[in-house]
């Protein structure tokens, strides 16, 4: 009886401490993000207040209004930046996915000379910090005239993402037994049909997750974009954040408002694709 009570008590405390720990961890992760959202609705006085104002008060949309307003009132070409970001991220993601699918499939299915060396080499390219490449990239792009263009940045992001998409997609295709495609071939498919009708649908979840990663990498990338884009015509949203800094002041409210606009599409995309990630991987066509 006593022992029973004790173990019940113990499991209760374990549960409580579990939740508390979880709460603390989640707070550490989430508070900066929530702070940005909060600040985007606050006047500068509250943002700068010391000690910080924890309880929100006097929330308004002034920062957003100003941001979309004319140049004189602290406005920035948000729509232009947004379009730039969208074009660059989407295009580079789609290209990286196609290259990644071709490469990942090849690595997973075929045997060829130097396969492992090439694979390691691909991953090693990711060991070089992007910023270290910014100057050489800048010079090359300036010489070839693709600096400050969508095309230039797309190229850079494709190069950045391809090793990663190949690696990730390779892993997913490896999990699909080759028998599936062979069964499809016997059922009358060509190699090409077997891929698109059987292997691709089964690996869809992997392709989707590679897509999210590639998209988020390009969408959020700042270091290279800040070097390789100059004008409104090619600047991406993260680079646009810098428009809020002037020589002596930083417009924190405006910056937070733009940051919120930056976060929203990424969140939406993740939510949409997440469903695929969970429901996608239903093996069982082969022995479990």
């Amino acid at each position: 009886m006593n022992i029973n009570r004790l173990s019940k008590l113990k499991s209760f405390f374990l549960k409580v401490s579990h939740h508390v720990t979880l709460f603390i961890a989640m707070s550490i992760i989430c508070i900066p993000g929530l702070w940005i959202v909060l600040n985007s609705f606050r006047p500068t006085v509250d943002i700068m207040a010391k000690p910080p104002v924890w309880v929100p008060r006097g929330l308004n949309l002034d920062n957003y209004r100003a941001m979309f307003g004319g140049a004189g009132e602290g406005g920035v070409p948000v729509m232009q930046y947004f379009t730039n970001s969208l074009i660059i991220s989407c295009t580079s993601t789609i290209i990286a996915l196609f290259v990644g699918m071709a490469g990942g499939y090849a690595f997973a299915r075929f045997r060829f000379k130097g396969k492992n060396a090439i694979f390691v080499g691909l991953l090693l390219t990711r060991a070089v910090p992007g910023v270290a490449l910014s100057l050489p990239l800048f010079i090359v792009m300036a010489k070839t005239g693709i600096i400050d263009t969508h095309f230039g940045l797309i190229l850079v992001y494709v190069a950045m993402n391809v090793p990663f998409t190949i690696w990730l997609i390779d892993g997913f295709f490896r999990q699909i037994p080759p028998d599936l495609a062979e069964a499809a071939e016997i059922d009358g498919c060509t190699r090409w049909q077997a891929f698109w009708k059987v292997e691709f649908p089964v690996a869809k979840a992997g392709v989707a997750s590679a897509g999210i990663f590639a998209f988020l990498t390009s969408w959020n990338e700042y270091a290279l974009a800040s070097q390789l884009t100059r004008s409104t015509f090619s600047k991406t949203m993260p680079v646009g954040l810098r428009d809020f800094t002037s020589e002596f002041t930083i417009n924190w409210g405006g910056m937070c408002a733009l940051a919120v606009l930056l976060i929203i599409p990424a969140l939406i995309l993740t939510f949409i694709v997440q469903k695929h990630l969970i429901s996608g991987l239903t093996f069982g066509g082969v022995k479990g």
Partner: peptide, 18 residues
């Protein structure tokens, strides 16, 4: 294979999971 008019049953069944 598609032109040989054969069918095959695999050891691990190779059913299309989707």
């Amino acid at each position: 294979p598609r032109d040989r008019n054969i069918s095959m049953v695999f050891q691990n069944y190779a059913l299309y999971p989707h």
